[in-house]
Nucleic acid binder design. Structure first.
Lengths: 188, 188
DNA sequence: GCAGTTTGTAAGCAACTGCTTACAACGCTA
DNA sequence: TAGCGTTGTAAGCAGTTGCTTACAAACTGC
């Protein structure tokens, strides 16, 4: 019987990536404060001292997790579909891989350098959403849509409130996109 | 010059109330995890041992803070005005006293008995909101409105994103209530 | 083969956390 | 005034936390 070695041997890049992945999972499940560097290292199968060598601090690691995950979606989605795609990505929890939003939502009590990343991420989303309307207060309307997306994620993932938590994504999309369209189209 | 004694002398009820108030402030500012029982006791001007005598644990104290603040508004507002009142209460940050929503939003990473309170609070709000529509999926629509309210609070209080964070409450109300009305009125 | 760098490991430190305990001060009642 | 439950205080305990350090093992260039 052959056994492939589960352990990485002296591969800094792979170790760093494993730490990043493990951090994303745990930050998403428990939030920043309730995730320990020991748990991250354990899940990544690495020594915790390496975490500090590669990322400097727990805070900086959190920052990288947030920055990495957030930009992936926004960069790979055309503006007009962003709202629907982001909404669906949040609703279809089965096939989800990206835990960035959970990390975001479960770490709202945490102020740090990550705050800047959080804000910048919001700016990018809102900027794209703002292109969908020609109203004078486009930015404000975009913020309200963004708030709605985050609120739906909050209620679903953290509060777990029914019937929204288990609702059919199609139903939710239909309702939200309908209301959002009236908000965006009716220029003031 | 007369000086009134700042210190309470052997008044259990007053001490308990002071601890509850201090806890509400700090949980609202920092969230559950980043608030220590020592800080709460210090702000309340009480000994931290009393916190455990009167509330049992930090967790139970958090639960009481959430339960107390949440029911006040919902009990004192007629159903038809709840949406507008809750929204305005969240937007007018100058005159705000109630930090319960902040405590809620800043402690999303925290699972405990407070989760039950959180959920129950959401149920009560959603139940009232659901009476505003005659659609078949009234509960789902109510959840979406609730999610929007929470999301707006999240973006304003935690993320601090502009222009929403400093937007005129009247403008926000007009936009949100307009879109919410179409969501609620158009029965599916 | 050997010096020097990179990668991984084990151990520990100092600070902080929620919570407990032992005890003193107070005030009510008899 | 004596007794006693209530309120307040000081000190500390045991566990956890982020982070550091000292060192061993592996790879690289010469």
């Amino acid at each position: 019987m052959m056994e492939e070695p589960q352990v990485r041997k002296r591969d800094a890049a792979a170790t760093k990536a494993a730490l990043l992945d493990a951090a994303a999972v745990l930050f998403g499940e428990r939030g920043f404060d309730r995730t320990t560097v020991r748990d991250i290292a354990k899940l990544a199968g690495a020594n915790q001292a390496l975490l500090f060598r590669y990322f400097g601090s727990k805070d900086a690691l959190f920052e990288e997790v947030l920055a990495r995950g957030g930009r992936e979606q926004i960069a790979s989605t055309p503006p007009g579909e962003l709202l629907g795609t982001a909404l669906r990505g949040m609703l279809e929890s089965d096939t989800r891989r990206d835990r960035t939003l959970d990390a975001y939502l479960r770490s709202t009590g945490h102020d740090s350098a990550a705050t800047a990343v959080r804000r910048q991420l919001g700016e990018e989303y809102a900027k794209v959403l703002a292109t969908l309307t020609d109203a004078g207060d486009a930015d404000l309307r975009a913020d309200l849509i963004l708030a709605w997306l985050l609120g739906i994620g909050l209620v679903r993932e953290i509060t777990g409130k029914e019937p929204l938590a288990s609702a059919d994504p199609d139903d939710v999309c239909r309702l939200v996109l309908g209301a959002a369209r009236t908000l965006l189209e009716r220029s003031g």
